[in-house]
Each structure stands twice: as C-alpha cells, then as structure tokens.
Design a protein around this nucleic acid. Structure first.
Lengths: 141, 141
DNA sequence: TATGCTGTTGCAATAATTCGCAACAGCTAA
DNA sequence: TTAGCTGTTGCGAATTATTGCAACAGCATA
C-alpha cells in the first residue's frame, strides 16, 4: 500500500537536480529494511551483499546526502555511531537513560510549541525531527 | 571570585567514589582554558604540553567521564567532532544553519517548559543541557 | 551522435575514536 | 608499613568515519 504522503524518493531527488543512482536506491532500501534504527555499518553490510563493489565511503556519503534531503533521519543515541531510519512516518524523539540505557520515545508534537516559539524569536526554521535527550528514567531516579 | 554554585570538582568526584587524578585535573583545566567550545584534539594539544606522556585515549575517556559527572557538557554542532565546555555557567543550546553554517544561541529557559512536561508525562528527568538544533536561519530561508 | 558540464563513485590515504590489556596508583584495613 | 582491591592510565592495535582525487556516468545541447 503506497503512501500518498511519501512521494517517490526518486522523483524528489531528481526534482532537486540530483540523481537517483543504483547505489542510492540500494542504500535507501537498506535503511527501510532495518526495522528501526540502523548504524552505517549495518547498512553497509546489507548493501554489500547486493553490490560487493560498493565502498563504505559511498554509504557514509549517501546517508549524509539522504538525510540532507530529509528522506531519512538520523540521531545519536550515544551508542558510538549515528543511527538512521526512514523519515516521514511518525516524527519522534528519544529519552535515553544515562544509567540503565533504556530508550523511550515521545512524539514530535511535544516539541512543536518550542520550535514555533524559536521561529518567532529567531526567525530560525528548525528541521531537526529526531532528537535524543539524556537523563534518568522513572526507575533509575 | 569563586562561585559558590560551582562546588570544587575534586570534591564532587571523590564524594562519588572516583579519583581526581592529575590527568583529570589537567583536562578539566584545558576545557576551562578554551574560551568556549573545544574539540578533543584541541584539548589534547593543550594538555600534551604540560604532560607529554598523556595519551589521546585518556583525553577521550576523561572527557566522557567529566561529562557523565556533569562537570562539563558537550554538544555536536555537526562539525565532525563533539565540542566540550565547562558546565554550569549559563546552560544554553544552539541553532545551526544547514545552509550557511551560522550558529546562534538560545537560553535553556526556552526548553524548560517542555522538559517539565516530559517529566510529568514520562517520569523522565532530562539532564541534557546543551543541544544543537538544525534548520535554516533567517537569511537562508 | 558527439561534446561538455557536473554529479557520483571507488580507492587509498587520513583522521577520529574506541578497545584490550598490562602496568600503575590511591585508598582501606590489617 | 604491607597487602589487596579497584579505579586509572598508557600503549598499540582495531574500528569507525571522512577526505582528495581521478575515473566514470547521466543529462543537455549542439
């Protein structure tokens, strides 16, 4: 069931003057294949099965590129590597417990008020849609 | 003029069962010496002048440690390395323009409402006090 | 089709960060 | 003071991430 809210990435990229190459398509597919957050290394290992010649540098560059285009999002949960997932679905953020490592989610709507306020005060339009906030969870306090 | 709000780091660390070693003291001093944000490499190069034997791994480990103890804070402005600065002074966050790279600041008080709300809803106490939010600045929109 | 412009890729080199482990240092209790 | 426990450090290697550059590929125009 194709989602009308999610325009064809290929079209989006071309409309902006870039190219949807086989590498980019494969990497996008690999991000989608990860149920949720995937590290660059996980994505690389998925892609390399289909295209053994692909280089790690291409994976890193392409992930950056797709994130700039807001087709995927990334987030640093403090695990050493950034993690990536498809954008669009339900924008959300995370609460990471510094003690036990538990990760909770909360919806983007909680942030929208502040972001709007910042836009009014600073004329700055925030596009960040995938934050990690650190602290202590209910159990660990 | 000593600041009563800033307890002696050495005391804080020892009270928690850790040790204030010469390395930790030097690294803390090096963070303080940087006027604002410093990269691990900048900190390393300051410290290595005083203690040529110190290893980069120690710098990275110690920065993590001091950040966990909330004596310093860090933030990823998208420049390749995390940057560190002393905690405590004026907690603040940054707006980083994706196009021109300009970095603006805004005060922690803007976030406090949301953080309080999250605490009510999730029982999660957020300690993050140095965020980077990405988007487009007034000029670049 | 031929040509040129520009975006993309792979490779190798480099940079940034982390890890494993043995040596070392500070604290406590005998 | 000595012994023992545990936190810390230095070293070097391993891992992870980024960069520079030449070759290549897609699209447009002639």
């Amino acid at each position: 069931m194709p989602n009308a809210d999610q325009p064809d990435p290929s079209r989006v990229i071309r409309q902006r003057g870039f190219r949807m190459t086989p590498q980019r398509q494969m990497i996008l597919d690999a991000v989608a294949a990860g149920r949720s957050h995937s590290t660059p290394e996980q994505i690389y290992s998925r892609v390399v099965k289909k295209a053994p010649a692909i280089s790690r540098a291409t994976v890193y560059r392409t992930l950056d590129f797709l994130a700039e285009q807001h087709l995927i999002t990334n987030c640093d949960l403090g695990t050493g590597s950034k993690v990536y997932e498809m954008a669009g679905a339900q924008p959300h953020h995370h609460l990471v417990c510094e003690r036990c490592g538990r990760v909770e989610q909360f919806g983007h709507e909680m942030m929208e008020g502040v972001f709007k306020q910042i836009e009014l005060n600073h004329g700055f339009k925030i596009t960040t849609d995938h934050l990690a906030l650190f602290g202590l969870c209910r159990q660990c306090r």
